[in-house]
Design a protein around this nucleic acid. Structure first.
Lengths: 139, 139
DNA sequence: CTGGATCCGCAGCGATACTG
DNA sequence: CAGTATCGCTGCGGATCCAG
């Protein structure tokens, strides 16, 4: 065993580099679907969008109250990401106490439409899926 | 500091239990959208569905070849989940060497339609999103 | 009140070796 | 060929404290 720990690490780092590169290639190639899904495919973005769709405009803690179970941190992170993509507006008023209002942009609203269609599909087929799951688990 | 490690752990476990319970509540309540998204919102399911949509029927390693970067393990896990939900069919032939063919069920195909619509939206708006990101990062 | 900064546990994924 | 078993790492997300 002439394999040193240093050598081990070098190899591992090399592999990691390769992995990152191929990952980047995949992102660039391939349909934009994946990229879009990455936005609202995460744990909370959907809820934020749906809630903002329902209520027009909301403050930070109102939103936090509506999305049961979300932590402060994740709400911040989620809203930042959505803002970055131009899906929500963020209006902060320099008052004391501070007030920040969030609302959907027109782009966000058009995405909401798509999500609602998906929701319709989901409602329509949820029973079939649940049945399929039961059937599968019985076997 | 009369706090023992055992006490620490007890408290932590207690919190975990609560977390799991509220998580379960959330799943049950709330729109089925989230539940559905959980299916193909993960890293690989979309690719599997899209590929099966294109190619009608595929064997395990064909699929693995088409989805660049997926590991054997994750392909297995992904396909199992999709099968469980009745989105893909799994036909295994008791031959040597073994042969397993996967294809979309009609339910899977209807989901594919939705995904394609989403893809259309994505293609249509990808530029706006990229612009928004640039604008955001410049600030 | 809004949210930035930091720490850290744990699920999820990848790599690898093994089986029918 | 099509998986299963095991293990280690990484990064997501929750908790907590702090700032404006």
């Amino acid at each position: 065993m002439g394999v040193t720990k240093a050598e081990d690490q070098r190899v591992r780092i090399q592999k990691k580099i390769e992995k990152v590169l191929t990952a980047r290639q995949e992102e660039e190639q391939c349909c934009p679907v994946k990229d879009i899904l990455a936005r609202f495919g995460d744990k909370w973005s959907i809820y934020a969008i749906l809630m903002l769709g329902k209520h027009e405009t909301l403050r930070f803690n109102e939103l936090k109250g509506l999305i049961a179970g979300i932590s402060q941190r994740m709400l911040t992170v989620t809203l930042r990401a959505l803002e970055e993509d131009g899906l929500v507006n963020r209006n902060s008023f320099p008052e004391i106490p501070p007030r920040v209002e969030y609302s959907l942009t027109s782009l966000g609203q058009s995405l909401l439409l798509q999500l609602l269609k998906l929701a319709d599909w989901a409602k329509l087929n949820i029973h079939q899926i649940l049945e399929a799951r039961e059937r599968y688990n019985k076997k």
